[in-house]
């Protein structure tokens, strides 16, 4: 199959790394070539973070450039808007409606743009907006936002639900399996 490019974007600390590993492992166990590019170091400290997951018959570059992403999974509204130029026209955007003010907004040096979801919807991409935080808390922890969102995205991908469940079981630490399965389920059925 040709290469599919998925970007997972958010705020450092939101758990984009686990989401990208889940997706990478799910595609690996389908027998595909996979590359996952991660962010470590300084930007993990509350900065804008992006991880790239690419899979298909043969993947060369580990990164995704402007206009190349088939999917963007955004953990926060402003990050969805920031990375929108990376989405292909007609690409799929799954966005968490949570807003986290960046420091320039907190200090008053900049303002958080209004009505971002509507603007994203009007930009020519297919948008699914979801409030993942209450679902994550329902599953047991606000930290499970990442897996709730992965559950939402999973509906649009060519992978069986059982396969996802198996991947979660083998990717997350044993004591968090139940919570993550619950989080995935809540996202998947949205």
């Amino acid at each position: 199959m040709s290469v599919t490019s998925v970007m997972i974007v958010g705020v450092g600390g939101q758990g984009t790394l686990l989401a990208s590993r889940l997706l990478g492992n799910a595609m690996l166990s389908k027998g595909l070539d996979v590359k996952v590019s991660e962010v470590h170091g300084m930007s993990q400290r509350g900065g804008s973070v992006v991880t790239y997951v690419r899979y298909g018959d043969e993947v060369h570059s580990p990164v995704i450039e402007k206009g190349e992403a088939d999917y963007i999974l955004a953990f926060e509204q402003l990050e969805a808007a920031r990375w929108l130029p990376f989405l292909k026209k007609g690409g799929k955007l799954v966005v968490n409606t949570q807003c986290i003010d960046p420091m320039p907004v907190i200090t008053g040096a900049a303002s958080y743009p209004e009505n971002l979801i509507e603007k994203l919807q009007a930009s020519g991409v297919d948008v699914t907006a979801i409030d993942a935080l209450p679902l994550a808390e329902e599953a047991g922890s606000s930290k499970a936002v990442n897996v709730v969102l992965m559950g939402v995205l999973a509906r649009y991908m060519d992978v069986d639900k059982d396969h996802w469940i198996e991947t979660i079981k083998t990717t997350v630490p044993p004591k968090f399996i139940d919570m993550n399965l619950a989080a995935f389920e809540l996202g998947y059925k949205m």
Partner: peptide, 28 residues
């Protein structure tokens, strides 16, 4: 790959964007 395509082939991908200014999010 975008820089290589642009510099060697003169090709650039079309991109979408919003009109709003997007505030930066530096690490904290």
């Amino acid at each position: 790959q975008a820089i290589v395509a642009k510099k060697i082939l003169g090709e650039e991908k079309k991109t979408l964007s919003l009109k709003d200014e997007i505030p930066v999010r530096p690490p904290v």
